[in-house]
């Protein structure tokens, strides 16, 4: 009897986790696939189809450590552009990045795409997170 109850409870828990995960992964996939389109339109010309950048002119988007450490600042970089030197993979890039005219949800989508492509693993960066980050732009 006890075994049955434990079994039932664990089954429910497993089901719950599984459904949770799939909802999360649906959100992720939705952000990621629409983010790919935003990337193509607004980012790819400069940063490249594989996020490779361009020599010492345009930084690559493959520095996972940089992206992880600056995760909450990335939305502001996209929204306002970047006008100061940054160090990516040990190299300094000092050319300006222009601001992109994107809505918070588009920024969230493209960040989810970049953050989970080119060898990066930042999981979903959703609209709420981007809204919160944008409120703190310097």
């Amino acid at each position: 009897m006890k075994l049955k109850i434990t079994g039932a409870i664990s089954a429910v828990i497993i089901l719950f986790i599984a459904s949770c995960q799939s909802e999360e992964s649906i959100e992720f996939r939705r952000y990621y696939s629409s983010g790919a389109l935003v990337y193509q339109t607004h980012c790819q010309n400069c940063h490249g189809i594989n996020g490779e950048g361009l020599s010492a002119l345009i930084p690559p988007l493959t520095d996972s450590i940089y992206l992880k450490n600056n995760k909450t600042a990335l939305a502001c970089y996209i929204k306002l552009g970047l006008n100061r030197p940054i160090t990516i993979k040990g190299r300094t890039f000092d050319d300006a990045m222009p601001a992109a005219e994107l809505s918070p949800v588009e920024i969230a989508r493209v960040l989810t795409y970049i953050g989970n492509s080119f060898g990066n693993k930042l999981n979903t960066i959703n609209e709420q997170a981007v809204q919160a980050d944008l409120a703190k732009c310097e």
């Binding site: 010309n45 400069c46 490249g48 361009l54 002119l57 222009p98």
Partner: peptide, 10 residues
């Protein structure tokens, strides 16, 4: 040039 030049020169 923010648009096509980086692709061209890549």
């Amino acid at each position: 040039c923010p648009s096509i030049c980086p692709v061209m020169h890549r």
